[in-house]
């Protein structure tokens, strides 16, 4: 008989956290290599910066009221545009999903808008709304509107037909059918659309502010680019990265909240 000795504690710890450890190690190696290359002069920090420089620039910026003003402008654009898009796109998606005729009426427009990046409309929005926050709000709104509406529509369309037939044969009213069959089945689709739309909304904020703006984090990055401040630019990119991760995490949490009341089908079966 072979004696199976338990693996040493250290190996077990590694095995259990392999994913975390390898991920963190790679990230660390990447940052150290970047720092070392910049410090030794192999790459020019003027263009590529270095992690410590980015952190120092960030430290300077968070004590600068201008930075907070930029952040507030960007956040306002995102919140108004994305909020309005969600408020309009979800009911609109339900409408074109439920009514074939409405879909025929609006289909050509949603399909055409879906095939283009909505940021293409930015120069038009600037002619119509000026270079203040409203042209960005419009681009953010359009960017998020289309994916949310289209996923909501396909959610309604793919409602389980068997459930609908069962509800119908038990003579459920149209309202009842909607609230107890169609709506719950569509929620996961709506969240997919909301996540996708959030990405497009952030994109709208960045592009709108890079293109023509007087304030905002994208404007800050563009200004820093014109004056070759790579540190500030990397810090700006990092803020957008953090914003993207935060929005995704918040939406994931909301989705789980919505899933909670869902009866567990496996348990029932």
């Amino acid at each position: 008989m072979q004696d199976h000795a338990p693996p040493p504690a250290l190996t077990r710890l590694y095995k259990n956290n392999e994913r975390l450890l390898i991920g963190a190690a790679t990230l660390l190696v990447f940052l150290l290599a970047w720092e070392a290359l910049a410090e030794r002069g192999f790459i020019d920090p003027l263009f590529i910066s270095s992690p410590t420089r980015v952190v120092l620039a960030g430290w300077g910026l968070v004590h600068d009221p201008d930075f907070w003003n930029d952040a507030a402008v960007s956040a306002t654009e995102f919140c108004i545009g994305y909020g309005a898009a969600a408020a309009i796109a979800i009911p609109f998606g339900f409408a074109i999903g439920l009514s074939k005729r409405l879909q025929y009426l609006f289909g050509p427009f949603t399909d055409a808008l879906n095939a283009v990046p909505r940021v293409t409309l930015l120069p038009l929005m600037i002619i119509w709304l000026g270079i203040g926050i409203w042209s960005k709000v419009a681009v953010v709104f359009l960017g998020a509107l289309i994916p949310i509406a289209i996923t909501t529509r396909s959610g309604v369309r793919t409602s389980e037909t068997r459930f609908i037939r069962v509800a119908r044969s038990f003579s459920a009213s149209r309202v009842k059918l909607f609230t107890s069959v169609v709506l719950p089945g569509t929620v996961p689709f709506i969240f997919t659309g909301l996540k996708y739309g959030a990405g497009r909304a952030l994109l709208g904020v960045v592009v709108g502010e890079l293109y023509a703006a007087t304030a905002g984090l994208g404007h800050m990055i563009a200004e820093a680019g014109n004056t070759f401040q790579a540190d500030t630019m990397f810090f700006g990119v990092a803020i957008f990265m953090a914003a993207g991760l935060t929005v995704a995490a918040v939406l994931d949490r909301c989705e789980r909240q919505f899933e909670k009341w869902r009866p567990d089908l496996r348990q029932a079966g």
Binding site: G225, V237, F240
Partner: peptide, 9 residues
């Protein structure tokens, strides 16, 4: 998660 266009400048 990043809007990659932020890298453009």
């Amino acid at each position: 998660a990043t809007p990659q266009v932020a890298f453009l400048p």
